[in-house]
Simulated scan of single mutants.
Amino acid sequence: MTNQYQSSNDFKYTAALLKYAPEETQAFIDFDHKTIKRREGNIPIKTRELIALAVALTTQCAYCIYVHIKGVK
């Protein structure tokens, strides 16, 4: 038996999260975009992604690890 608790397939539920918890989901998306994806600032985006990846590895969040590995490339 495999543990399917954390799977990249879970990203398909993002639309449901936006539908049933729109404020909370949007707040998380806004936070991510303001801290990682924004173009301005003194810290390059790749460095921000590496920092976020380090945090994700520390918290062992498989979803965050997956997203931030893609962001570092």
Rank of each mutant, 00 (worst) to 15 (best):
T2N: 08
T2S: 14
T2Q: 08
Q4C: 08
Q4M: 08
Y5R: 15
S7Q: 05
S7G: 03
S7P: 01
S8D: 08
S8R: 10
S8V: 06
N9M: 12
N9G: 14
D10H: 13
F11R: 11
F11K: 08
K12W: 07
Y13N: 07
T14P: 02
A16T: 11
A16P: 01
L17P: 02
L17W: 05
K19I: 04
Y20K: 10
Y20A: 06
A21P: 04
A21Q: 10
A21K: 15
E23G: 06
E23R: 14
E24H: 10
E24D: 11
E24A: 13
Q26G: 01
F28S: 08
F28T: 14
I29L: 12
D30P: 04
F31T: 10
F31L: 10
F31P: 06
K34E: 07
K34T: 07
K34Y: 06
T35E: 11
I36N: 13
I36A: 07
K37H: 08
K37A: 15
R38N: 12
R38F: 01
R39H: 15
E40L: 13
N42L: 07
N42I: 06
P44S: 09
I45F: 01
I45W: 03
K46Q: 13
T47D: 05
T47K: 03
T47A: 05
R48D: 02
R48N: 05
E49F: 03
L50W: 00
L50R: 06
A52D: 02
A52E: 02
V55N: 09
V55M: 14
V55W: 05
A56C: 00
A56Q: 03
L57D: 13
L57S: 15
T58D: 15
T58I: 09
T58G: 09
T58L: 12
T59M: 11
C61V: 03
C64M: 02
C64H: 04
C64T: 02
I65D: 00
Y66P: 03
Y66S: 05
V67P: 01
V67T: 10
I69E: 02
I69D: 00
K70S: 07
K70C: 06
K70P: 00
K70R: 08
G71T: 07
G71K: 03
V72G: 02
K73G: 13
